Simulated assay, not measured.
Amino acid sequence: MKLSDQVAVITGAGSGIGRALAMSLARRGCHLALADIRRDGAAETARLLQQTGVRTSVHELDVADREAVHALPDAVLAEHGRAGLLINNAGVALGGTFEQVSESDFDWLMAINFHGVVRMTRAFLPLLRQNDEARLVNVSSLYGLVAPAGQTAYAASKFAVRGFSNALRHELEGSSVGVTVVHPGGVATSIAANARAPAGANATEIALRRERANKMLRMPPERAGEIIARGIERNKARVIVGADASFVSWMERLMPVSYWSLLKKAYPT
């Protein structure tokens, strides 16, 4: 896919992988609509891109807000006149076993990580179809490949993104719109530090879990952004980000049921 002079919409563009990917796309001459629940974060990303010469716009957006998502295509059209690339990157984390996590917290995570992807896709697919070449990029996770104990909510949302993306790719086969699903491994973002904990959880236990999680987040976001950008350029259906995600994807293929017997020491609950 030619990214020069393309227009990309990125959710979660105010930090982490979203910001890094915006910078990778900008270096390739791609114009950007930067959306984030924190407007100041998206604005800072836009500021960092000033020297690239690409056109940027900043949009405050909660992907769980139906009306806000519905209004975003018109806002992007007003700023850019078109959109040929949608990257659904916004996401949150929620620790705890299924019995520890409340129904409301489970629904909160699914509303952002999965239903937000579906809403954004429904809102922007008509715009994507207007292009001779367009692509939808949905960010799943390492936990969309395997499902560790203590990650029922998060894994459920990321497996849902994977299944939705794969089925939609088959439905859009032969059209101008391609679909890419991305599975990042341990990328050094703030997602673990910002993860929501179950109500009433022990503070010491929460701190220990976050410390363990942060130790697994090693890849610089800038490296992840480049890997994803190259995957988009090559029209890849699936992009695995990181040696850890690559290893786990092969393990899951070889041991689809019993992989947990080997992985559980690395992912303590």
Score class of each variant (00 low, 15 high):
Lys2Phe: 11
Lys2His: 14
Ile10Cys: 03
Gly18Val: 04
Met23Cys: 08
Met23Tyr: 03
Ser24Glu: 12
Arg27Cys: 10
Arg28Gly: 00
His31Thr: 03
His31Ser: 14
Ile37Gln: 00
Arg39Trp: 07
Asp40Lys: 05
Ala42Thr: 01
Glu44Met: 10
Glu44Lys: 11
Glu44Phe: 07
Thr45Gln: 08
Thr45Trp: 03
Ala46Phe: 03
Arg47Asn: 13
Leu48Pro: 07
Gln50Arg: 14
Thr52Lys: 06
Val54Gln: 13
Arg55Glu: 00
Ser57Gly: 11
Val58Gly: 15
Leu61Asp: 07
Asp65Ser: 08
Asp65Gln: 04
Arg66Asp: 11
Ala71Arg: 15
Ala71Ser: 15
Asp74Ala: 15
Ala75Ser: 15
Val76Gln: 10
Val76Asp: 03
Ala78Ser: 15
His80Gly: 00
Gly81Asp: 12
Arg82Glu: 07
Leu85Thr: 02
Leu86Pro: 15
Ala90Met: 12
Gly91Ser: 10
Gly91Phe: 02
Leu94Met: 10
Gly96Val: 02
Thr97Tyr: 09
Gln100Trp: 02
Val101Asp: 01
Phe106Cys: 09
Asp107Tyr: 06
Asp107Trp: 06
Trp108Lys: 09
Trp108His: 13
Ile112Asp: 04
Phe114Gln: 14
Phe114Gly: 10
His115Tyr: 09
His115Trp: 13
Gly116His: 07
Gly116Asp: 08
Arg119Gln: 06
Met120Asn: 15
Arg122Glu: 09
Phe124Tyr: 09
Leu127Asp: 15
Arg129Phe: 13
Arg129Trp: 14
Ala134Cys: 10
Ala134Glu: 13
Leu136Ser: 05
Leu142Met: 15
Leu142Tyr: 13
Tyr143Leu: 14
Gly144Trp: 15
Val146Ala: 02
Val146Tyr: 01
Ala149Pro: 11
Ala149Lys: 11
Gln151Trp: 08
Ala153Tyr: 12
Tyr154Ile: 10
Tyr154Trp: 09
Ala156Glu: 07
Ala156Gly: 13
Ala160Met: 08
Gly163Met: 01
Phe164Thr: 05
Ser165Asn: 10
Ala167Trp: 15
Ala167Ser: 14
Ala167Lys: 14
Arg169Ser: 12
Glu171Ile: 08
Leu172Pro: 08
Val177Phe: 10
Val179Thr: 02
Val181Ser: 09
Val181His: 03
His183Cys: 03
Pro184Cys: 02
Pro184Val: 00
Ala188Phe: 00
Ala188Gln: 02
Thr189Asn: 01
Ser190Gln: 06
Asn194Phe: 01
Asn194Val: 01
Ala195Gln: 08
Arg196Met: 00
Gly200Ser: 12
Gly200Leu: 13
Asn202His: 02
Glu205Ile: 03
Ala207Glu: 00
Arg210Lys: 12
Arg210Asn: 02
Lys215Pro: 10
Pro220Met: 08
Pro220Phe: 05
Arg223Met: 07
Ala224Cys: 14
Gly225Gln: 05
Gly225Asn: 01
Glu226Asn: 10
Ile227Gly: 05
Ile228Gln: 02
Ile228Gly: 01
Ile228Glu: 04
Ile228Phe: 04
Ala229Ser: 08
Ala229Phe: 02
Arg234Met: 05
Arg234Lys: 08
Lys236Glu: 11
Ala237Gln: 13
Val239His: 05
Val239Trp: 14
Ile240Asn: 04
Val241Gln: 07
Gly242Ile: 01
Val248Leu: 09
Ser249Gly: 03
Ser249Tyr: 03
Arg253Asn: 05
Met255Gly: 00
Ser258Val: 04
Trp260Asn: 10
Ser261Phe: 13
Leu262Val: 10
Leu262Asp: 04
Ala266Ser: 11
Thr269Leu: 11
